[in-house]
Simulated assay, not measured.
Amino acid sequence: MFRVTEEVRFCYGHRLLDYEGPCARIHGHNARVEIELSSPTLDRKGFVADFFDIEKAGKDWILAQFDHRLILREDDPVIPFLKQAGEAFVTLPVNPSAENFAKLIFDHLRGHGVPVTAVSFYETDTAVATYDER
């Protein structure tokens, strides 16, 4: 099996609702995302996939959506205050956890025809969540 991985790094802020602990407060991370594609064969160019295509569908979208953004669950009670202050933020229907980020990115790539097999979302250098098709 051949496997290729494209890496994306970005900064974001978030907080987790329904959670007791420090991550219930707004805070930030330097995230690293690994997008993995696998294939038993290579195409005529000798590729599993062109890294440029992975970057266009994955990295460009991730950076446009999440880089240097505050990511909140859509029912976060701080949202009205952010709106009133004119602050930018992004909402998700789920908590912005590493697990949910991994699945969200996986689903986006699959929806755009990228034959992704796994997405690993590193919230920190030592904390990683992976979503794959297994």
Rank of each mutant, 00 (worst) to 15 (best):
M1A: 00
M1D: 00
F2R: 05
R3Y: 00
V4M: 03
E6D: 14
E7S: 15
V8P: 12
R9I: 10
C11R: 04
C11V: 01
R15C: 04
R15I: 09
L16F: 13
Y19E: 00
Y19H: 04
E20D: 03
C23T: 02
I26R: 06
H27D: 00
H29C: 10
N30A: 13
R32G: 06
R32A: 07
I35D: 04
I35K: 01
L37F: 01
S38D: 07
S39N: 01
P40M: 05
T41Y: 00
L42R: 01
D43A: 01
K45I: 05
F47L: 05
A49C: 00
A49E: 04
A49F: 00
D50F: 04
F51N: 07
I54Y: 04
E55L: 14
K56E: 11
D60R: 13
W61L: 12
I62C: 13
I62P: 15
Q65S: 13
F66Q: 14
D67S: 14
D67K: 08
I71K: 10
I71T: 08
I71F: 12
I71L: 13
I71G: 11
R73F: 05
E74A: 11
D76A: 07
P77C: 04
V78E: 04
I79N: 06
I79W: 09
P80W: 08
F81D: 03
F81K: 03
K83P: 12
K83C: 10
A85D: 00
A85H: 01
G86T: 10
G86R: 02
E87D: 13
E87T: 09
A88E: 14
T91I: 15
L92Y: 11
V94E: 10
V94D: 15
S97E: 07
E99W: 04
E99H: 06
N100C: 14
K103E: 15
K103H: 14
H108D: 08
L109M: 07
L109N: 06
L109C: 02
R110M: 05
G111V: 05
P115H: 05
V116W: 03
V116N: 05
T117S: 03
T117Y: 04
V119R: 09
F121L: 08
F121T: 13
E123I: 07
E123P: 09
D125K: 15
T126C: 13
A127Q: 08
A127L: 09
V128T: 08
A129M: 09
A129I: 08
T130C: 09
Y131D: 07
Y131Q: 01
Y131M: 05
